[in-house]
Nucleic acid binder design. Structure first.
Lengths: 348, 348
DNA sequence: TTTTTTAATGTGTTCGAGCACATTTTTATT
DNA sequence: AATAAAAATGTGCTCGAACACATTAAAAAA
């Protein structure tokens, strides 16, 4: 029993030439019923899988992958994504992989659409994107499907049935993770605040998912928790910092603050002055959050690992193109709980 | 400016044949000084990297990787490793990769040595092992080095300078992670117990590393914590469960219990009866631990992700053999903090 | 039956690296 | 200068899949 049969092997076993075997496998026609049967008989017995390396060599094609992602200058959360891209480019530079970045402003749908148009015009083999803007992302997905371009998303979700690859975190569940942490720290009774802090509110569905999960936990456990929700957004002309301070002045008697965005540091900056006993749980290992984590002004951070998301998305697409590995339709990544002691290992 | 040059390209640029280029690259001699210079001049300009796919196809070699790991029947902690092996076998079945398992009893050095001898006798290209027994593992490493076999370790460490690949967790730091969690849950003053629970104590250095990290945290922060260390091991003829119960009867006034092994469930089983207010932090997502985690009898678990360790070790070795990717000498994996809400994502 | 058309099958080349072998050039020897 | 020996260089094949093209066999038309 051989392990890996080649086309030549099959040809010999079936008593035909490799050309005929090839035609049978690829259903290119021009095969007599007799030969077809002979080859299929062999194929049934041995389960042939073409050698992906030979296939790849013969192909010798350059695959273009476009990636639509927000500008890291506007929000450092996205910085690790760029590292992941660089890493993948290095690892796969000799495998004929080209990655084309389409950077957009995270607050501008126009910028997103423009970047998308630019990138799709070059007819890439796949488009990987952060679907920050629901309607616009849906449109991009549809255009890709129409053009036969593989389409993948990460970090956020849209409900498009033709997405080929979807990588992200279970946001509802991550809200529950935060809730459980508060529950452990504060016991069976407390007052909490959910804070949606961001400079803009387009497509804020991810924040709401986290809030839903957060509330769901306490409801399900029937705990005596009071939970207030606050939307805090940058007001024009007033510094964001000032807005935060005003907010903190306006509330009291809060045991814990759950920040659904990566902006927990804005809060932590002033927490000692106004609510010294309140615990903060936030998201994402951005530098400023880590600073306050280390100062114990942030209790926990939840890590969404954007770098891993990009890395996995890209390698999944690449291995699909190069080696015919199937695309994982949907991949839900772990919800990493971060404290002062374990954050360094997540940063590399 | 071309991206990927081939040997043929270089030959044309240097005005020689591809055979000569090949001899220069592989330093096989038989090249005139003049030709050498011509080729090197081109090589300096373009930075040639051979196409790993073509190389791999030509090679057409079957690589044998041996993996020495404990029997999962004796300790379910190792079960995910077997899943990782199966997964890698499937993913790389058409890349000429053979994985040979050498299973040993986790309490028997003899069994380890026997499995190692058996596996090395077949002259694999690499040996990946869990170096549970220091002296014996060191010996295996030396034998591999002598035989030109690549040697990799995971889960535990030995100090052998010739290890080619080392994957695991920072155990000292994971002790600190546990300490920090207790600190957050219990405040600035408490009494804790460190429990080394296992059925045998050979090579228990990993437990001690965790203990050191744990104590280090409180010492560094100068917190008023009392920490007592207990070794609990299976006594012959007495059921382990009974030993645990006796231990619990013997202590009181403990706010938290830190179990340095995967045996936290043995404790959790009886905690409600003897120390209902004590918090347990343990290691590893074995089924029984998860059960008590869900019942809130275990507060947190630290995940050592043996599956990921094996997966990364194997793929790293494979990509080294197939595509000349360099081996990462030492890779320290994140210390995952697990509670009731986030464990499922770590299990897949 | 012979010729034409169409269907079926086989052969040869390519991808890039790597190595065996053949050929050519240079150097040494008579 | 002729020949032998050694050194240098070039050619051609392999790995396995894929496809273009050539060849052969069978069916249709004359």
């Amino acid at each position: 029993m051989k392990e890996n049969y080649t086309i030549k092997d099959i040809a010999e076993l079936a008593g035909v030439s490799k050309g005929t075997v090839d035609r049978v496998i690829h259903k290119r026609g021009k095969v007599s019923p007799k030969a077809l049967e002979q080859v299929n008989k062999v194929l049934d017995k041995i389960e042939y899988k073409p050698n992906p390396i030979a296939k790849s060599l013969k192909n010798n094609k350059i695959y273009n992958i476009a990636i639509l992602l927000p500008d890291a200058d506007a929000d450092p959360y996205w910085l690790p994504c760029y590292e992941a891209i660089k890493q993948v480019e290095q690892e796969f530079s000799h495998f004929g992989i080209k990655i084309n970045k389409g950077v957009f402003k995270p607050k501008s749908t126009k910028s997103f659409t423009k970047a998308a148009d630019l990138v799709i015009a070059e007819k890439p083999d796949a488009v990987l994107m952060v679907p920050l803007f629901y309607k616009e992302a849906e449109h991009v997905a549809k255009m890709c499907v129409a053009a036969g371009i593989k389409i993948a998303t990460f970090n956020n979700y849209i409900k498009e049935p033709h997405i080929n690859l979807e990588i992200g975190q279970d946001l509802f569940q991550s809200g529950r993770v935060a809730a459980k942490l508060f529950n452990m720290l504060l016991g069976n009774k407390a007052t909490l605040a959910v804070l949606h802090i961001d400079e803009a509110f387009q497509n804020a569905s991810h924040m709401q998912e986290k809030e839903r999960g957060f509330k769901d936990y306490f409801a399900q456990k029937e705990l005596a928790y009071t939970i207030n929700v606050h939307n805090i957004k940058k007001e024009s002309k007033i510094p964001f910092d000032q807005t935060i301070e005003n907010f903190l002045k306006s509330i009291d008697d809060v045991d814990g603050l759950f920040v659904t965005t990566s902006k927990a540091y804005l809060l932590a900056n002033h927490i000692a002055a106004y609510l010294p006993k309140s615990l903060i749980i936030g998201y994402d290992l951005v530098a400023e959050n880590i600073k306050y984590l280390e100062e114990d002004k942030i209790a926990f951070l939840i890590h969404q690992d954007p770098k891993k998301q990009v890395y996995l998305s890209l390698t999944n697409l690449i291995e699909f193109f190069l080696f015919d590995k199937p695309l994982q339709e949907s991949l839900t990544l772990p919800i990493d709980i971060i404290n002062t002691e374990n954050y360094p290992q997540y940063l590399n």
